[in-house]
Amino acid sequence: MADLLVEQLSGFGLATIMARKGVSGMAIGMALGVEAPAQPAFCRGENNLALIGTGAGSWFAHTDMVSPAWHTALRDRLAELASVSDQSDGYMLIRLSGEDARTVLQRGAAIDFHPEVFAPGAAATTVIAHIGVVIWRRDDDARGRPKYEIATFRSYFDSFRRWLDHTAAAL
């Protein structure tokens, strides 16, 4: 019996943050009270806010519990520091957890998910089944099993789900 839990997440918030010219990640992190990683990584700070490095001077802001004003508040805090675009509706989030979650990802993405390489807090922008994805690893669950979250563009979600269902069935 495969040990895999697939959850489709709702109520999250996502936003693209792109630093204005000459603004450091440090300054952006200071303004938000969370580390803005200079590499693909998932850094969680206060207020249920996390930043995911997605490229040079660019991050995904992530929250598990979004409010209608979340994006505007983010924009206000980063005024003059960064351009902010709400993406909360542009993506769907799937959480994969359990002992077999890594195998599922390894059958999709051509990157190394070995626990020493892709530890909790790691993130990657890559492709699964020809669909762009952003993947990050949260802290392990209470039983020490890995927990990954995958963001895909909303319009691709049905196709992504078909790949996931086929792959999970082969575990």
Binding site: M18, R20, G22, S83, S85, Q87, D89
Partner: peptide, 14 residues
């Protein structure tokens, strides 16, 4: 040298 940022928001809006 321009201070300008751009990102796709195609999927954000219906």
């Amino acid at each position: 040298e321009l201070d300008v940022q751009a990102t796709s928001v195609t999927e954000q809006w219906a």
